[in-house]
Design a protein around this nucleic acid. Structure first.
Lengths: 196, 196
DNA sequence: GCACACATGTAAGCCGTTACATGATTCG
DNA sequence: CGAATCATGTAACGGCTTACATGTGTGC
């Protein structure tokens, strides 16, 4: 059977399981929130559970209900040989990986800046800077935790990329703030253009 | 009637119409491909047409079939006063604009680098650099076309942001390439971990 | 005459989110 | 004992893409 076409998110979830150890869906979500999230977004709980079921149907993962020894009824997943092989095939795939998708609501608003109060616009961008700095702290925390673990060499590279990316995001926003300021402090809001 | 909740894409399409002039769905798509695309992605034709219908139902745009004077049966849209007001309300909205969504397939693969040939991985990133440079050329073309048009001050700022962002994207990818190289040229692919 | 750009749509379907429901365990 | 965290799901829905269908006008 050839490797089936799956959404990237499915490979991402399988990828989370490609690192040593078994994990529950819940743990996978936490993990995604502190790694995947920075460069690919983190799927919702419900989707992770759904993907896990699909991956199990495909034979790419197996699950084990916690026995009587463990408290709580949880289900831990492990990648199978087939899963690892399929993932490797996908990763080596000669097809192009698909376009980067960027949806930046702040830019959307700046782009339509002629409709907003200049002051409000600057506020929006400034808030964005704050959020980016928060994320930067998160990514640095994640990086600190991954530090020194040899098995995580590649995740570390991805995190370092994310760190630099967030630094750039902050710089970019600051540059935009300067551009906005350069429009002139008294840049008026475009009024209803009825009869000029 | 309060401003209804609409997907950002709807506001984006309405936003395209907030600049002077009437436009067909087809033209809107072309426009989106050379502006919106760089920071928000460009919706498919079919979605643009769908949004236009929705906006017309809401009374935010009006449409005009080309009369007998014009060739081709096309439909040109114009924003209404209500549309402009709703868009301004949305733009000024005090609610947070929503999270930046970034989905980076190349990073996903780097993150799972332990499954791939190092050589293949570097190739992937190098291709990404090329694509980013192509996009950079596109954004610079768009910038050149927008140059000097006063009505496009804000779109220009968005494009300048996009330009810098793509420059950063290239730098980021180059940095990652260096990180990958630093792993050592002979970094082996993880083999099936059956019996250690 | 044929290909290509213009121009508009329909239909199907997956992806992914939000909201909701449920219950166990731990900690103060 | 109540709140928070752990843990797993279902249901509904919306967004968006892909593939398909159709027809006109332009240029080689």
């Amino acid at each position: 059977m050839p490797t089936p076409r799956l959404p990237q998110t499915a490979w991402a979830v399988l990828g989370l399981l490609s690192f040593p150890g078994e994990r529950t869906g819940y743990e996978l979500k936490k993990w995604a929130d502190s790694s995947l999230r920075f460069f690919y977004g983190a799927p919702a709980f419900s989707q992770i559970y759904a993907e896990l079921r699909r991956l199990e149907d495909l034979g790419y993962v197996t699950s084990r209900r916690s026995g009587p020894e463990e408290p709580r009824a949880k289900r831990a997943y492990t990648i199978t040989e087939e899963g690892r092989a399929a993932l490797a095939t996908w990763a080596a795939g000669t097809h192009d990986p698909g376009a980067v998708s960027l949806k930046h609501p702040v830019l959307l608003r700046v782009w339509l800046g002629h409709l907003a109060e200049p002051e409000r616009l600057r506020e929006l961008v400034a808030e964005h800077v704050t959020r980016a700095e928060d994320e930067l702290r998160d990514v640095r925390d994640a990086l600190a935790k991954a530090d020194g673990v040899e098995a995580w060499a590649h995740p570390q590279i991805a995190l370092r990329w994310s760190e630099r990316r967030l630094v750039a995001e902050v710089e970019l926003a600051r540059g935009m703030l300067a551009d906005l300021a350069a429009l002139g402090p008294g840049q008026p809001v475009e009024d209803s253009p009825t009869h000029g």
